[in-house]
Design a protein around this nucleic acid. Sequence first.
DNA 1: GTCTATATGTTGATAGAC
DNA 2: GTCTATCAACATATAGAC
Lengths: 195, 195
Amino acid sequence: MARKTGSHSDITGPRVRAAALQLFARDGFAAVSMRQIAAEVGVQAGALYLYTPDKQALLFDLLKAHMDDVLSHWAAEPKGTGPQAALEAFVRFHIRFSLTRAEAVFLSYMELRNLTPEHFAQIEALRRAYEDQLEAILEDGQAAGIFAVPDTKLATMAIIAMLTGVNTWYREGGRLSRDRVEQIYQDMVRRAVQA
Amino acid sequence: MARKTGSHSDITGPRVRAAALQLFARDGFAAVSMRQIAAEVGVQAGALYLYTPDKQALLFDLLKAHMDDVLSHWAAEPKGTGPQAALEAFVRFHIRFSLTRAEAVFLSYMELRNLTPEHFAQIEALRRAYEDQLEAILEDGQAAGIFAVPDTKLATMAIIAMLTGVNTWYREGGRLSRDRVEQIYQDMVRRAVQA
DNA sequence: GTCTATATGTTGATAGAC
DNA sequence: GTCTATCAACATATAGAC
C-alpha cells in the first residue's frame, strides 16, 4: 500500500496509455513510434517498457479497456420498459458514448488488424457480446410484434454501423446539438424497424 | 506508339498498383514496405520508382482512381423515375459496388490520414460529390412530399454509413445472398425516410 | 526497364549505470 | 523508476551498371 517516495509508476502508466491512445488514433498504430509516445509522456523510450511488455500489448490494453468500458456502461444504463424503450436507450447510449470516447472508438475498428490472432479473438468476442445486446432487443420486439425486421442480425449490423458513423462527421459546436442528433437517429431507427 | 521489345512498362505499372492496393488494404499503408510491394510484383524495390514518384503518390493514385470509379459508375447507373426509384437505385448500387471493390472501399476510409493535406482535399471533394448525389435524391423526395426526413444531410450520412457497413461483415457464400442483402437494406432505408 | 549497391535515417527492444 | 547507450533490422529513396 505504501507509496514509494519519488515513484511515478502509479501515474506514469496511465499517462503512457493516454498518450498512446491519442497518437494511435491520430496517426495509426503502425505509424507511431515508441519514441513519439515517450516524448509525449516526457520520458525516454526505454522507460515505456516498465509499463508494457511491447507495443502490441499497449494496443491490446487500450482496445480491451474500451470494450470493457462499453459493456459495463451499457449494463448500467437505464433501459425503460419494453423493446421500444430499450431500442431508444441503445441508440442514445451508443451515440453519446461513442462521441465521448471518440478516440477509443476510432481505434477499436481501425486497428483490429494490428492485433495478434489471440488478442483479436478476445476483442472480437467482446464486440460480439455488445452487438448481441442490440440483437436481443430487436428479437424481443419482433416476438412482441412491435418490430418487423426481416433479419435481426442484419438489422443489428445496419443500426450499429449507422450510429457509429456519427463519429466521422459530428463536431462539437456544429450545426446540430448532440441531443438533436440523437433524436433524429432515434427517429430513423424506430421507423426502419417498427411493424 | 511502337512497343519496345522487352518492355513491361505498360503492364508492370498496373501490377504495382494492384499489389499496393491489396497489401495496403490488408496490412495498412504504414505497415507495408516498398520491398513487400516489389516482391509481390516480382521486381526489386528500386524498380517501383519507375512507376510512382514515392509511396505517398501510390496511395493517392489508388484512392483517386477509386473515387473516379465510383462517380463514373454511379453516373452511368439507371435510376428509374422519381426519388423513390432513385433512392432504391442508390442503395443497390452502393452495396453492389462496395462489395465488388471491397479493398478500394476499405482503403478509402482507412487511409485518408496518410494523405498529404493537398491530396486529402482532393479525395475529400470527390467523396463529398458522391454524398451530394444521395442528398439530392433525398431533397427531391422531401420536396415532393414522398420522404420525410428532419435533416437531409444527416440522413445522407446515416444511410451511407449503414450501407458501407455491409463490407465489414458480408462474405461471399454466407447465410444471405448479395441480392437478399440489397433487398433488406433497401427496405430498411425506404422505411427510415418515407413520409 | 530492371538490377545491384548503397546512403541515410528510423524502428522496437534491451543492458547496465545511477 | 528512469536514463543513456546501443544493437540489429528495417525503412524510403537514389545512383549507376547493364
